[in-house]
Design a protein around this nucleic acid. Structure first.
Lengths: 209, 209
DNA sequence: CGGTGAAGTTAGTGATCCTTAACCCAGCGG
DNA sequence: CCGCTGGGTTAAGGATCACTAACTTCACCG
């Protein structure tokens, strides 16, 4: 005869009594947000599941109720970012009348995103190599499509410059715009947006030395 | 009575018979170089000691003959980079006649470094948070001094623009110039250098929108 | 009021990793 | 010829980590 006596005592949790009926899937978003900030600061492998749980008030493996694993979390994060950039870019470009307006629209998109989600931007161009293979291809494809969007607009605006040069110039502009995490708080957001826009336009308008 | 019989058989290693008398400290540099590439690709915590050893032909803990640990390796790597940037920047600026030439010198330094050591540049602005505390302060100090070097030159060149704006602009230019790892191979190095220089100069010369 | 499912909890497991210990070998100075 | 030192090796230890298992609570619905 086997008797198992369970003496576990569950004391009432002393949290701030969140309404248990929060928006469906709001917890997922909360986790993604906290994880993005941690990944941006210490890198994917430098952050533990326990860290992420702690950042949202739960401890540890509660995360597995919302994501199938750590890599899946990163995959979803990067897929969401590259999809948002690509689709909003495409929409704004097709709405625009002429290449000039299209470039302005692309700049607005990227600047607005970089300023309001610095952690996501940081993770987006650092951690692609840590995404497992099925999702990595999709992310890379979206990133490539987004880049080509910029290149086609630019090659209409500045004919006579090679595709390779425009691709390199676009990467450089991405680097310029995504520098926001490094200069956080130097300027108020509106001034920062204007500064970045002006610098990017000037940089793109100048071929060679 | 305790008898220990050691039956380990050491078979001759089948390597390419490197001359055992290589340059003093050349192994350290080799390890630093390999580690930089690995860190740039997968992040500090995503690379194991075994990986680094494997990349230089030795296996695993041989690394501890040259560095006191993994973090010490990273510390030395980042300290070296920030020192090289800062001192070469300072030298070239004091040699220059006038702010115009000084800015050109700073641009040359940074571009040359970014083009010839893309992995180091990548690690340098990603992994600072993984450096243990005694060294981190020194690195941050050097980075700050280097930034201020740029800002003083720029504020002489463009008076009437606030320090904060110039700091943000400098960060943006760093982001632009350090984009080289992303656009590797798009253009031949000389053309890339000229493109980056032109874009950076134009971006800096343009205040606000 | 009973059952159900979503969202937590702790305990435990196997793998990985950094680091150290113990040992080995080639080259060189005396 | 001997000992020392610099640069390797494998084995082992202790910590950490991702993930699973078992269990609990609670809101909600019939």
């Amino acid at each position: 005869m086997l008797v198992i006596i369970n003496v576990t005592v569950y004391h009432r949790k002393v949290t701030t009594a969140q309404p248990a009926t929060r928006n469906r899937g709001s917890r997922r978003a909360e986790i993604l947000d906290a994880a993005a900030k941690l990944f941006a600061a210490r890198g994917f492998h430098g952050v533990s599941i326990e860290d992420i749980g702690g950042a949202v008030g739960t401890s540890g493996p509660a995360l597995y109720r919302h994501f199938s694993g750590k890599e899946a979390l990163l995959s979803e994060m990067l897929l969401d970012v590259s999809e948002r950039l690509h689709t909003s870019g495409t929409r704004r470009v097709t709405e625009a009348a002429g290449a000039e307006q299209a470039l302005n629209a692309l700049l607005s998109c990227q600047i607005e995103f970089a300023l309001s989600h610095p952690a996501l931007i940081t993770v987006h161009d650092r951690e692609l190599d840590n995404v497992p293979e099925p999702a990595r291809r999709r992310i890379r494809r979206l990133q490539r499509l987004y880049l080509e969007e910029w290149v086609t607009v630019l090659s209409e605006l500045y004919p006579g410059r090679s595709q390779a040069e425009l691709r390199a110039a676009t990467h450089a502009v991405f680097g310029l715009l995504n520098s926001t995490p490094h200069s956080a708080g130097e300027l108020p957001p509106a001034a920062m947006a204007e500064l970045l826009r002006g610098m990017a336009r000037a940089a793109l308008a100048t071929p060679k030395g």
